[in-house]
């Protein structure tokens, strides 16, 4: 009994050690980025480098808050993420309802085909999308047009996965509830809106979050389709990097500003994230 208790204890300690190590690795680059963002140019480039800032400064943040990052890019990203995730969840709910409740010739094939769209590399569509944007005349940075268009692109990108997730949530809702609603005189559409959607709300939330974060982090389409003040945070950061001024304290401050919104969303709503990813990948 004594030995088994001892092994159990050792077991526990080693498990915590390994997990702790991985947690440390996960958090370390972020922590160092945070520390760097509070240094100034001189303190960043020291030999040997230091982890903590010798004094806490806000030079980097000052630059970032005076740059296009906070003036335009953050708002553009916020607009794109919100618009596309709301539209995706709306459209995907309707489509998933069909896939979950109806069978018609080819419905399974259509469902698979939509899922198959996820295999198209984002890179494949860039030049054609540029052409479409250019034909529609939405490449000029002035006004919302460019961001409306890219939100539509993100909507198309997020739909397949969202349909998959939301359908698996709908599948788990017993059909008897709708039946009852229909008997009470609801139309199927009303049944969907009043009965099914409230019950599947966590699923919709999960899909919303995934699309929101993916859109926030998207880089390639934004690089190609957006110009000037219409750009988003990721492209804005890339421009910081490729410009002549090399200033890691500014870049890292920009990194912190960019990741903070999604980080907060994640920490507050982590359950929904976990759910979405598990639903999406394991069922369906």
């Amino acid at each position: 009994m004594v030995t088994s208790k001892l092994t159990r204890r050792l077991d526990q300690i080693s498990t915590h050690l390994v997990l702790g190590l991985f947690a440390l690795i996960a958090i370390f680059p972020i922590a160092y980025t945070l520390m760097t963002s509070f240094k100034n140019q001189d303190e960043v480039l020291t030999r040997p480098p230091t982890f903590f800032p010798p004094t806490w400064r806000f030079d980097g943040y000052q630059t970032v808050f005076n740059s296009d990052m906070t003036r335009y890019y953050l708002w553009n990203s916020l607009f794109n993420s919100t618009t596309s995730s709301i539209v995706v969840v709306t459209l995907a709910s309707l489509a998933s309802y069909t896939f979950s409740r109806y069978r018609f010739r080819g419905s399974r094939a259509l469902e698979l085909a939509i899922l198959g769209l996820m295999m198209i590399p984002g890179l494949t569509n860039l030049v054609p999308l540029y052409r479409i944007a250019s034909d529609l005349g939405v490449l000029r940075p002035q006004g919302l047009n460019a961001n409306l268009f890219i939100s539509a692109v993100y909507t198309a990108g997020g739909l397949p996965f969202a349909i998959w997730i939301i359908k698996s949530f709908f599948d788990s809702i017993p059909v008897e509830l709708e039946e009852a609603a229909l008997i009470d005189g609801c139309t199927p559409l009303q049944a969907l809106i009043r009965v099914v959607i409230p019950l599947a709300a966590p699923g919709l939330m999960s899909a919303f979050l995934l699309v929101f974060v993916d859109t926030w982090n998207e880089f390639l389409a934004a690089l190609v389709l957006l110009n000037g003040t219409a750009r988003t945070v990721t492209v804005g950061l890339y421009d910081f990097q490729s410009s002549f001024e090399i200033a890691y304290h500014v870049w890292t401050a920009a990194c912190v500003v960019i990741m903070l919104p999604v980080l907060l969303l994640f920490v507050l709503l982590r359950k929904r994230f976990f759910e979405a990813m598990l639903q999406g990948a394991l069922k369906g």
């Binding site: 944007a133 250019s134 490449l139 000029r140 003040t229 490729s242 410009s243």
Partner: peptide
């Protein structure tokens, strides 16, 4: 004058794309 700011390492490529796509 309405200026569109293009990063220095993208301006030549973006101009090429714009012309070839017969866009704006």
């Amino acid at each position: 004058i309405v200026n569109t700011f293009q990063p220095f390492d993208q301006i030549n490529a973006k101009l090429n794309v714009a012309v070839q796509a017969r866009g704006e």
